[in-house]
């Protein structure tokens, strides 16, 4: 199939960018979206134009490295990662606009690549259980009811891709934040630091310049791992509890 692509090109973090238009031909519908960009890049390289920079690593939907705004949908029209989106989702002759995640907390580095280290810093503020290596009791010392273990797992599957931020009209990272809070909050191991964790992580979230959540729900609709809005409620509840406990 043949497509018209409008792709954001920006040479570096401080220069201005703009959408550039490219035509691609003979795209197979079995290609993944990123392979389609590979084909375009191969051509640009042969024509002497610098290839388009975009991030990806695992290309199987688990590392969270890829992420493009495709025709106004984070990761494209399907609920999956950009690397798992295939060209059969598009129609011959279609025009596709491709932009980087737009968030002040995720500055654009080049073309479609953004800096998501803000997420790492949020995790630094308590997104863990403080246990030193070697200090752990036997794994069976603390049973965890299956329902809780399952919920912890469901929320722990967040891949940190940032689609929630990219799609949220407020640029909020609440879904990401809520996923980690819920994961650790469900487990007995996570209880000791529960109050301080939520307060510190939310403080860093705000400090990074993410917006506040007003429960719009775009994030959960875009999340490739189907993290539900429940986690934001859980996040709010944990914060409210921390307020009550005087943190």
């Amino acid at each position: 199939m043949n497509l018209t692509l409008k792709i954001w090109r920006q040479p570096d973090p401080v220069s201005e960018g703009a959408l550039a238009t490219y035509q691609v031909e003979d795209i197979s519908e079995d290609m993944s979206f990123l392979e389609m960009l590979d084909v375009l890049n191969e051509r640009l390289n042969s024509e002497g134009e610098e290839p388009i920079a975009f991030d990806s690593d695992c290309r199987e939907g688990i590392c969270g490295m890829c992420g493009l705004m495709i025709n106004g949908d984070a990761h494209g029209p399907l609920r999956t990662t950009t690397c798992q989106l295939h060209m059969r989702t598009f129609k011959d002759g279609e025009t596709i606009t491709i932009e980087p995640w737009r968030s002040t907390a995720f500055p654009v580095l080049k073309d479609l690549c953004v800096d998501r280290r803000a997420f790492d810093r949020i995790i630094q503020q308590g997104g863990y259980v403080s246990v030193n290596t070697g200090a752990a009791p036997d794994a069976h010392a603390m049973p965890v009811p299956k329902a809780q273990a399952d919920r912890a797992f469901d929320t722990a599957t967040c891949i940190g891709c940032g689609a929630c931020v990219a799609s949220c009209p407020n640029g909020s990272a609440s879904l990401f934040l809520g996923a980690k809070i819920t994961h650790l909050g469900e487990l007995p191991q996570g209880q000791a630091e529960r109050d301080t964790r939520v307060v510190k992580m939310v403080a860093q979230h705000d400090h990074e310049g993410f917006g506040g959540c007003t429960n719009i729900g775009e994030c959960a609709a875009a999340c490739p791992k189907e993290i539900p809005l429940d986690v934001i409620s859980q996040l709010n509840k944990d914060l409210r509890t921390a307020v009550r406990h005087g943190y």
């Binding site: 259980v129 752990a136 009791p137 794994a139 049973p143 965890v144 273990a149 912890a152 797992f153 994961h183």
Partner: peptide, 22 residues
Amino acid sequence: RNIIDQCVAQGVPFAREYGGLL
């Protein structure tokens, strides 16, 4: 054996049975 202990203590959500054990 120590690996599993360590990971569980970190909050790694391994699959569990209904009794709550791994």
